[in-house]
């Protein structure tokens, strides 16, 4: 670089610098806007879900009275005189979730206790990945398992069990949510301070007593919220019940029979192409909105419990 050109070059450099500074300044202003727009998509998704469900459900209630829907015990969407009572679906959903929780709550909680309080570090490092794998298996695989393995197995034990029944998918759904309860409850127990454990142990308590009288009460909010989340998951579960529980819309409490859940009804209606604008088509949205309301309330409830009743140490 020649000395005589130095002046010019510096000026050019300054110009260039200020140009690129302008560019950077523009970028600094532009980027947050772009990010903001993309963040809005997640808010928009919630809005769209609620809007579509509400709008089409309102259409549905123009054709079917509100009370008939929520108190009707007959669900015959395809008959000559169609009836749209959601109660059979709600009973089916509650039954399957209840069976699932009977399986998952004790086993999940006991697994959590073992992993958090009893297992050595090495054993825990071996067992946790297994539970994670169990949680990562697609639900369609569980559906296949329920239909081709658990149902035939149960048939051998319970005479009169139908090929499609609510018991088998209920049990398999329970197996599916064990990892969820186990890992969330374990997190809750794990966050109980070590000093409380040691204090109780020093007073001569056995590990079981420490667990039952110190750890579980301290972690109760987390445990209950894990149960509520698991129920919400079971309510929204689709493929297992669709495959293994068939599509009977009878209002029954017999768990050896086929029962349809809300999710399975949605699948049935969308698979048989209901023409847009028909009452059946709108019933889809009314059922989906009910399902959405159920799970949303449970999720909010779980969050509320874990915040409101958390023991702070």
């Amino acid at each position: 670089m020649k000395v005589s050109n130095k002046d010019v070059n510096v000026r050019a450099l300054i110009n260039q610098q200020s140009k690129s500074k302008q560019f950077f300044k523009a970028m600094e202003k532009l980027i947050p806007l772009v990010l903001k727009g993309l963040t809005a998509i997640s808010i928009l998704t919630t809005g769209l879900i609620i809007f579509t469900l509400l709008a089409e459900t309102l259409e549905f209630f123009k054709q079917v009275p509100f009370l008939d829907f929520f108190t009707g015990t007959e669900l015959k969407p395809l008959s000559q005189h169609p009836e749209f009572g959601i109660l059979p679906l709600i009973i089916g959903t509650i039954t399957s979730s209840f069976i699932a929780m009977i399986v998952a709550a004790p086993i999940g909680l006991m697994s959590a206790i073992f992993l958090s309080e009893y297992a050595s570090d090495r054993l825990r490092k071996m067992l946790k990945p297994v539970l994670e794998v169990l949680a990562g298996i697609p639900t369609i695989v569980y559906g296949f398992f329920a239909f081709t393995f658990v149902t035939p197995l149960l048939k051998g034990m319970i005479p009169g069990l139908e090929t499609t029944n609510i018991l088998s998918p209920g049990i398999v759904m329970g197996i599916m949510i064990i990892p969820m309860i186990a890992s969330l409850s374990e997190d809750a127990m794990h966050s109980v301070p070590q000093s409380m454990r040691e204090g109780a142990l020093a007073l001569g308590a056995t590990k079981l007593e420490v667990t039952l009288k110190v750890i579980i009460p301290a972690a109760l909010s987390g445990i209950i919220s894990s149960f509520v989340l698991a129920i919400s998951r079971a309510i929204g579960e689709t493929m297992i019940v669709t495959i293994a529980s068939g599509s009977s819309k009878q209002l029954t409490f017999d768990i050896t029979q086929s029962m349809q859940t809300m999710t399975a009804y949605i699948v049935e209606v969308t698979s048989g192409d209901a023409p847009a604008g028909s009452t059946i088509y709108y019933s889809l949205y009314a059922v989906a909105l009910t399902l959405f309301a159920f799970t949303l309330l449970m999720n909010l409830f779980a969050r509320y419990i874990s915040r409101r009743f958390r023991e702070e140490y």
Partner: peptide
């Protein structure tokens, strides 16, 4: 926490 089937409807 929204059930996957609701996304399907959306």
């Amino acid at each position: 926490g929204v059930p996957s089937i609701v996304y399907g409807i959306l």
